[in-house]
Amino acid sequence: MADKQSDLVQGTLDMLILKTLDLEPMHGYGISARIEQISKGVFRVNAGSLFVAFQRLHRAGLIKGEWKATENGRRAKYYVLTEQGRKRLNSETREWGRQVAAIARILEAS
């Protein structure tokens, strides 16, 4: 299902990135690998969409970027969740749960 997620609502990718960063600060590749891994390969994020999302989140003040060395001694930009980002993640998660429950109720109605 490569790149199927580009059909998803724009906010969904943002939410997945915020959730990944809620676990720990991470660089671009790490974030995409983590999303792929946790979703068991359902979501594979295209580099273009990923970096556009970083730019968007950064400008919205939800994440911060800082250059650091990786465990392999490479330099990489690590993204960190800001306080505002954490709040947004909480509210989005709640909203998402509400919507999923609502959709499930509609689909299961008989």
């Binding site: 660089h27 671009g28 590749y29 790490g30 995409s32 690998a33 580099a47 970096f51 990786t70 392999n72 490479r74 330099r75 990489a76 930009k77």
Partner: peptide, 15 residues
């Protein structure tokens, strides 16, 4: 900066 970030992404994925 964007160049370096993307190159890093490519390298790490390739590794």
């Amino acid at each position: 900066e964007l160049d370096e970030e993307l190159r890093g992404f490519l390298e790490m994925a390739a590794e």
